[in-house]
Amino acid sequence: MNKDTTLKEKKAGVSRRKALKAFGLGATVAAGAAVASATPGKPSKVDISFDDQMGNYFQDHYKKMTKEEIKEALARLERRYKATYDVDIKVDNMPAQPGVLFGYALNISKCKGYRECVKACTETNNQSRDPEIQFIRVLEMDKGSMNMEEANHYFSDDETVPKPDKWYLPIQCHQCENPPCVKACPVEATWKEPDGITVIDYNWCIGCRMCMNACPYWARRFNWKAPSLPKEDINPVTHYLANRPREKGVVEKCFFCLQKTRKGEMPACQEACPTGARVFGNLLDPNSEIRYVLEHKNIFRLKEDLQTEPKFWYYSD
């Protein structure tokens, strides 16, 4: 039963992509200029000044820019988003706070596979809706087994969860202390911030996907086409290194909602979890809930043997 739904889902996804491609191909053959205006989900004409286009093209690596240059870059982005989406988007660049190292723990005995975290993540973080980019993948596995190759990645939203003989394992970026993705990037477009979150400069990424190969948790996603993000779905509160709208041909992934968490809020997935399976906090604060979990529960990490030192733990009651 399960496998059938999975297959159907997969097929539906594939045919949608095929249809999109066929459309794209036809349009290109017909007239190159018409393509931009015919792309669905995008306004017909985006008016960006020549100065801004040049400024965008020659923009330096985020960490090499001066404060002044960053300020200009943020303003440029805000103007571009206004022109593209007709929404006033605020792009922040709040730095990591001293004395903070973020960590996550997830209670697998509480996770019931509702996937509210997956939805909340997308709603908060301005991912492309079509094709839909999701940062969290929830695996459904037989009780008593942890063979990921046997896991169901595509259990349908229409099915009632939890199923009696199944358990659920959500996987997202594990924010490794020793991140292999950072090492693999040829242009240092991805790096680990002082608060332990690995971020991406979407304006510097060249789209080679080396980092996607390096990641042991399959946490990274690629914008195979220009993201389509309907105006009404946009979250206007953004951060340069996090949830600002992305562009075509770059890699993205979970950033522990740093636009929220650096201000002391919880990440969207933690807030959305209906069973309270998710515990997020500052690993350097001895009184934090996450420290309590790490010190008092049976904890484990995925693929610890690869020595990437993830800051994402699983535990059970």
Binding site: R17, L20, K21, G24, L25, T28, G32, V35, A36, P131, G207, M212, W218, R220, R221, F222, N223, W224, K225, A226, K248, G249
Partner: peptide, 13 residues
């Protein structure tokens, strides 16, 4: 160049 790598058969997987 116009549409992106979506035109290929590649995927996140």
């Amino acid at each position: 160049l116009q549409e992106g790598l979506i035109k290929t058969g590649m995927s996140d997987q």
